[in-house]
């Protein structure tokens, strides 16, 4: 370990909460929401890798790889959805798709 684990955890926490803040602020724009989710997932990956480096265990790195695989599946579906919604309404504003709120 080159730096204390706590410093990496602070970095990961910062990234996670920046992503969370962005997600809350950008809740009208689908694309930017997805970008913010990516930031948060990255922070989680950083925690896994840091844990793996701290205890010399392979599982942390493997979970980071799993997260990446899951993210790519999620993003491909979400972007297909964005394209689909844009084709229907010519916009990516989430407020335009709220007719099912009851």
């Amino acid at each position: 370990m080159i730096v204390p684990l706590e410093h990496i955890l602070i970095l990961a926490g910062l990234l996670f909460f920046i992503g969370m803040g962005g997600l809350l602020a950008w809740r009208a724009n689908l694309i930017m929401m997805l970008v913010c989710i990516e930031v948060m997932l990255n922070a989680v990956m950083l925690v896994f890798v840091a844990g793996s480096a701290r205890w010399g265990n392979a599982d942390g790195q493997l979970f980071a790889v799993f997260i990446m695989a899951l993210t790519s599946a999620e993003v491909s579906l979400a972007l297909a959805m964005v394209v689909y919604l844009h084709r229907r309404r010519k916009t990516v504003d989430t407020d335009m798709f709220s007719e099912m709120k009851g």
């Binding site: 370990m1 080159i2 990496i8 694309i31 997805l34 970008v35 990516e38 990255n42 990956m45 890798v49 840091a50 793996s52 480096a53 790195q61 980071a64 790889v65 990446m68 993210t71 790519s72 993003v75 491909s76 972007l79």
Partner: peptide, 22 residues
């Protein structure tokens, strides 16, 4: 952090595929 595999996949998948998809 001694995880070259994750680093490479980060660039290939995140920067090279997901962000390009965006």
């Amino acid at each position: 952090l001694m995880a070259p595999l994750v680093a490479a996949f980060e660039v290939i998948l995140y920067a090279g595929a997901i962000m390009v998809l965006f």
